[in-house]
Design a protein around this nucleic acid. Sequence first.
RNA 1: GCCUCGAUGGCUUAGGGGUAUAGCGCGUCCUUGGUAAGGACGAGGUCGCGGGUUCAAAUCCCGCUCGAGGCUCCA
Length: 635
Amino acid sequence: MQLLLIHSDYIEYEVKKSTPVAEEIEESFKTGRLEDALTVFIAVEKVDESNVEGAISKAVEEIKSVVSQVKTNSIMVYPYAHLSSNLSSPKAAIAVLKGIEDALSGEFNVKRAPFGWYKAFKISCKGHPLSELSRSIVPDEASGSETSACLASVKEEVVSEALKAESTAKSYWHVLTPDGTLHDAASFDFTGHENLRKFVDYEISKKRAVEKAPPHVELMRRLEIADYEPGSDSGNMRYYPKGRLIKSLLENYVLEETSKVGAMEVETPLMYDMNHPTLKKYLDRFPARQYSIESDKRQLFLRFAACFGQFLMNHDMTISYKNLPLKMVEMTRYSFRKEQRGELVGLRRLRAFTMPDMHSLCADMEQAISQFDAQYNMCIDVLDKIGIKVDDFEVAIRFTRDFYNENRDFITNLAKTVNKPVLIEMWDTRFFYFVLKFEFNFVDALEKASALSTVQIDVENAERYDINYIDSNGGANKPVILHCSPSGAIERCIYGLLEKEAMKTEAGGVPMLPLWLSPTQVRVIPIAEKHMDYALKVSELLNCRVDIDDRDDTVGKKVREAGREWVPYVVVVGDSEVENGTINVTIRAESQPNKPAKLEMTPAELNTRISSEVEGMPYKGLCLAKMLSVRPKFI
RNA sequence: GCCUCGAUGGCUUAGGGGUAUAGCGCGUCCUUGGUAAGGACGAGGUCGCGGGUUCAAAUCCCGCUCGAGGCUCCA
């Protein structure tokens, strides 16, 4: 905090004009005057935010000491930003200024000039040796447990309005069956819908009965997919080559699917100006916490979705009704959300995650609803191809009462599409920017639910970002905007796949990733060194990710390791294969624990089999050396 | 962010006021082996970080970092 203290015959001010950060004030506060006063010009700085109370008490101490020296009883607390190039947030500044005013007012005649206004002022400096002083104040580090009430109030003020709204929004819970009946969720008979029961328990009663780590956390490390990175912030992971390959394939797949429905891929910045007027309002309507960073004088925040970039782009575009529905997509690597520390778990909930974010500008609600329907079906298909089937997730549909009353048949049809009961959350009034949304929620091995795909109908942001399209009469109109993440977060898809396989293992099955996502699709194991040439030849005949276990180990051990890596096809070659020109293939998908499904075939036959299995899905080559003997270990 | 629990070689771990186990992995050598771990030897640790108590701390106390569970929350 910077202070400039001036002992004056008088100080008077008059507000002229408010700035965007102006505090609201009463009429009487608009002018002020003090005689024989110490005027304290104050610039509250960034560092003061870490310990607001400490900053206040230090400043008060300084001011009191000067007041006693100049022997006056009147103090004017005057916000003066120009004393510093490293200002605090306006909210913190107001808290500090008020705090100083309050602390001094018991003992002195104190006035405070309002914050955030252009003010005219007159001051008459006495000119004696002590009449002009300046002070710099740096507060001590805030002590952890003794967070001051004052700091807490500053922190609370930056919580978005949407987060606050969420805690007061009254929800009505129902289960909608495909026949169109709306049941009360509390009394619904979940027989035959165990997974939905778990999901509903999770959503409504917030039931938790877990005391162990989710199985995917161990798997993501053991399979060398991803790991914690202690050198970063919590929830920011490192991805090993296998993890990067899987992510890359998933990202490419989702982008291809959005491209098929006409979405244009774009790229937008990761960070935005927190004080941009439009963004500021949007921040207030989105229930997420942001990472904020300081850059010179600007306060920036890291995006938590691609909405900003795309909406700002839409705002500047010239859009005709002929262009609608207009779709743009970005694979956000990353989206950042500063989730509370205790909320972070493995790949399930992160602070930096990769999410496809597609927005569709629609001419009106009718077109929006028809697009919503199409995207609902696209999401089902995308998750299915990724390996998460309709049976693996539960549907939640959330809307306002008005929207439901006007679109009952449409909503019922969504339940019909998945042909099973779905969870309904209804609100009396619209708390959020959307009138309708659905999510597909994966229920994991520990009965925890988390959202994957989602589509929302947004009726607020066209207005906020001033996005227009020109209709056939030449008039400007506001589109209805759909937000869609076809797969949900890519990391969360991996979490889902791993959890699903953990459950499968628990039930006595053999776990594996879908073939198109398996880092090694075929592992060739030569029985002895003399079979290496043949092993190489076989690997060259196969059109997929093939590696060769050329290490000096027994066949038994190599087979075991291939199994631990979930390799879908394990090929063993020895004398008889060399002689016959065949390969001996263990097919993981058809195996049971201790009962491998083995088949003698030619490399060409295996090729045919594999290509039909991965048809239409993206492909990339091996992410590690072909020879296992030269591969490093990551874990 | 709050509450509870935890952190010992690359990984999994035993132990616990007197600087410490074992298995896997890694390296060297032997073994050329037909479907879930062949054998021998060897290297590798200021016991998460910072303070305190003590003659002595990896061990007890405090703080921090990271992780797990709960509250809360979501893609």
